[in-house]
Each structure stands twice: as C-alpha cells, then as structure tokens.
C-alpha cells in the first residue's frame, strides 16, 4: 500500500495520544493543576493532530461528519464515534481535575477504556481487510494496542511499566513481521485464482491495461525492495524499542527516550503501509 504521510502521522500520533490519555485518566501519574494542564494538553494535541492529519487523506474533508452515520457496519465510522467519545470523557475528567481539583475516578476509567477502544477501532480498519493478507490478522490489532500502551506509559513517565510494555511491543512487532511475510502466500490468492486461468497452465501478466499508472497502482501497488526493508526494520526496532528501554534505565532521559520512540514508531508505520501487499497487485503482475 502507498505509505501516505497523512495516514502515517495519523496512526502514530493518535495512537500515542490515546495511549497517553488512557494512562492519565487512570491517574498514572496522579496530576494536579499545571502538571495536569501540561500532560493532558500534550495528549489532546497528539490525538487531535492525528485525527486532523487523517482528514488530509479525504477527497472531501468538508463532508467528514457523514462518516458518523454507519457505525453499525463500518470500523471507520465506529472509530469516529469512539474518538469523539474518548476525547469528550477525557476532557470532562481533565476539566474536573484542573478546575475543581477533584478526581472523578469512574469517569477516568471510562475515558481510558474509550481511548483504547479508539485505538482498537483504528487497527480494525486495517485488520478487517481480507484484500491485504498481511494486515488481516489479530496481531495487527494487538500491535496497535501494544504500541499505544507502551507509548502511553513512556510519555506519562511510568519507567518500569514502560520498559516492560516496550519490550512486549517489540516482541509482538517481530512476530508480526515474521508471520506477516508469509501471509500473502498462505492466503491462497494468486494470479491463478485472480484470473481463474490457473488450471490451464502458468499464468503471467503479459500486458497491463494502460501504459501509465492509475489510481490502483499508485494507491495499492507499492513495492519495497527486500534489502531496503531489512535495513529499515532494523533501524526501527532499535529506535522504537531498544534505545527507549535502555534510556529509561538511566535518570533524566525521559524526553530523549520519548523522541527515539516517536521516530521509531513513525518508521514502523511507514513500513506497516509500504510492506502491505494488496491482492489487486496480482492483476498487475506485481506480487
């Protein structure tokens, strides 16, 4: 899939933002007055910026409100509802904390659950797609949630939970790559089934329908060189998981660890899109 900047920013920032919100709303760390303003501000800015970035991907952002209508069938619509509900609940919780100096714990729990549910809905937009076998797996949602939790623990300064969660997410990422690399082959969809000509012999794409690119090839037929991918994966693993967990063992390195993690997750998300093979590529002889 084409690694669109708007979607990379959206999934990274809103994932981290909602992860942070979940921790803050659980009272981890316990915050009051200016510290609360700063931390909740950071979480809202990240989650909000991510959601705004996602609208850049739309052909008609001015109609975005229509996306709230199909929650019964569409994960994208559910995500819109959950994100709004999470921000509203967290906003109320933060307002009570900052202006009235009271912690409404049940409201915080609700906001935390809604925040994580938002991340889950985002992950399901991708994981539901049978057409992208690499994404069509439970590990996609598990990884989105693990990264949100790890990032949330890190940004909220929960050093030990952060180390554990970051390492856990790293293992999960490794597993997702390891199994994901096989998933297109395992899906059983090939040029033979795509054309129905497989029983007659070896099928090869002879001539594309047109001499130039089209929407489909630009959007869904992105190929990363294997050598390239391996290098990027290694750098991303080091930045997103290794560096932050080592830094967290040292004092006063929280912001540095957070910066490395953010850079690493941005790379992971680039790979998440760029490496995902859409079966339509088969028709173009590109898989």
């Amino acid at each position: 899939m084409h690694p669109a900047r708007s979607l990379i920013l959206f999934t990274t920032l809103s994932g981290l933002g909602f992860g942070l919100l979940a921790f803050l709303c659980l009272g981890l760390p316990p915050l009051t007055s200016w510290a609360a303003v700063f931390f909740f501000g950071l979480a809202f800015v990240m989650a909000g910026a991510g959601l705004i970035a996602s609208t850049f991907h739309l052909g008609h952002p001015e109609r975005a409100l229509k996306a709230f209508t199909q929650w019964r069938s569409s994960w994208l619509s559910r995500e819109a509802w959950l994100a709004t509900a999470a921000l509203a609940a967290a906003g109320l919780y933060a307002a009570a904390l900052i202006f009235a100096d009271t912690r409404v714990a049940p409201l915080g729990w609700l906001a935390a659950v809604l925040s994580l549910a938002t991340v889950y809905a985002t992950s399901m937009i991708y994981a539901q797609l049978k057409t992208v076998p690499r994404w069509h797996h439970w590990s996609t949602s598990a990884l989105f949630l693990a990264l949100a939790l790890a990032g949330g623990a890190l940004l909220s300064g929960q050093a030990w939970p952060a180390i554990v969660l970051i390492l856990g997410a790293g293992v999960l990422q490794f597993y997702a790559w390891k199994t994901g690399d096989r998933r297109l082959a395992d899906s059983g969809t090939t040029l033979a089934t795509a054309t129905g000509l497989g029983a007659r012999g070896e099928v090869r794409a002879f001539e594309p329908p047109h001499t130039g690119p089209n929407y489909l090839t630009r959007e869904m037929v992105f190929v990363v060189a294997r050598k390239h991918a391996l290098k990027l994966r290694s750098i991303a693993l080091v930045l997103a998981f290794l560096v932050p967990s080592l830094l967290l063992l040292l004092p006063y390195t929280l912001s540095l660890a957070a910066a490395a993690h953010l850079a690493g997750v941005l790379m992971l998300r680039w790979l998440f899109f760029a490496e995902a093979e859409h079966v339509v590529g088969l028709y173009y002889g590109k898989r």
Partner: peptide, 12 residues
Amino acid sequence: CIGCGLCAWACP
C-alpha cells in the same frame, strides 16, 4: 462520498 478510499482498499 468523502473520498476516503477505504472501499477501493476493500475490493480485491
């Protein structure tokens, strides 16, 4: 249609 493109992703 908001032009999100998700349906094109869902079509094999």
